[in-house]
């Protein structure tokens, strides 16, 4: 097997793991080293195969009926779904989706809040006529800011000579409700991924004193980069986001010898 074929097979293997939900932390990191569009296209094909497989197996088992109470709840949700701006159930303003609690129960509200964020952040977007993953990180970030009710924002501060002096360094945005966030980064030099990579850490004292791994990433060009945060554990009350420089693939515990950027959350 040539190196190109081996690389291609590895992408297929990781896409299969993604579809089966069995990727390890190291593999999540590894994904970032592959071309995003190629990987996502392969994921989509794997997910379609998984869906067909599910349906095939499902066809051999007795039918199960959804609980009547759940069905009623869905029908209540449906009542408000097509409502326009004047209806109380759901109000849409530009890109934002806001909820009017009086129209729904707690459970429905939770579902709406969750979906408002998750729809905005969905990894794949289906377009009529072709299958593509078209949502850019910039669009995903904008959607999160527009839709998440609990968005936290903080500007990066330079803590080391890696950053270019006088540069507006960007910011981090985070939504605890959706467990999603994005970093906008300017001024960090491009890294050689074979030698070192950047790694995000999230400090959440409500968990414990160990920072949560926020994912390994590369800066591949000068100018602005947007990076999706890949928190490996749930983060509830983040107080600091810190970027360190680590060996390729990242580390489990950082010695923090090189920590070029830091963003503190003012109040939580």
């Amino acid at each position: 097997m040539s190196s190109v074929e081996a690389n291609d097979y590895r992408i297929q293997e990781l896409a299969a793991g993604y579809s089966l939900g069995d990727l390890t932390d190291a593999e999540w990191h590894e994904i970032q080293s592959y071309d995003r569009k190629i990987f996502q296209a392969m994921v989509e094909r794997s997910e379609e195969a998984s869906a067909c497989t599910f349906l095939t197996f499902q066809n051999t088992v007795p039918s199960e009926r959804m609980p009547a109470e759940l069905s009623s709840r869905l029908q209540k949700m449906a009542t408000g779904f097509f409502a326009d701006d004047t209806t109380p159930a759901i109000q849409k303003a530009s890109n934002a989706v806001t909820i009017a609690p009086s129209a729904m129960g707690v459970r429905e509200i939770s579902a709406w809040l969750c979906m408002a964020a998750s729809i905005a952040l969905a990894l794949c977007v289906w377009l009529p006529g072709k299958r593509e993953w078209v949502t850019s990180l910039e669009e995903q970030r904008a959607s999160l800011i527009a839709s998440a009710p609990d968005i936290l924002r903080s500007k990066w501060e330079s803590t080391a000579p890696e950053t270019k002096p006088g540069t507006e360094l960007g910011e981090v945005v985070w939504s605890t409700a959706s467990q999603q966030g994005f970093m906008t980064i300017r001024g960090l030099p491009a890294n050689d991924a074979k030698k070192e990579q950047y790694q995000l850490w999230i400090i959440d004292p409500s968990r414990d004193d160990k920072p949560v791994d926020g994912g390994v990433f590369d800066i591949i060009k000068d100018g602005e980069s947007i990076v999706a945060i890949q928190a490996k554990l749930r983060v509830d009350k983040p107080t600091v986001f810190a970027i360190t420089v680590e060996k390729p693939g990242g580390v489990v515990v950082s010695d923090q010898k090189r920590l070029p950027l830091l963003a503190k959350i003012a109040s939580n």
Binding site: E47, E48, S50, A51, C52, F54, L55, M66, L70, R73, L74, M77, A78, F81, R107, E108, A111, W112, C114, M115, S118, I119, A122, V125, W126, L127, P128, G129, R131
Partner: peptide
């Protein structure tokens, strides 16, 4: 989860293309 899935399905309904996959497959995905 079922509530979340239906909401997502309704939001993404316009992205379903019957020439590319069966509707049931799209829903399952």
């Amino acid at each position: 989860a079922v509530q979340e899935i239906f909401l997502e399905l309704w939001q993404k309904a316009d992205r379903f293309n019957p020439s590319l996959s069966a509707e049931t497959t799209f829903v399952t995905m």
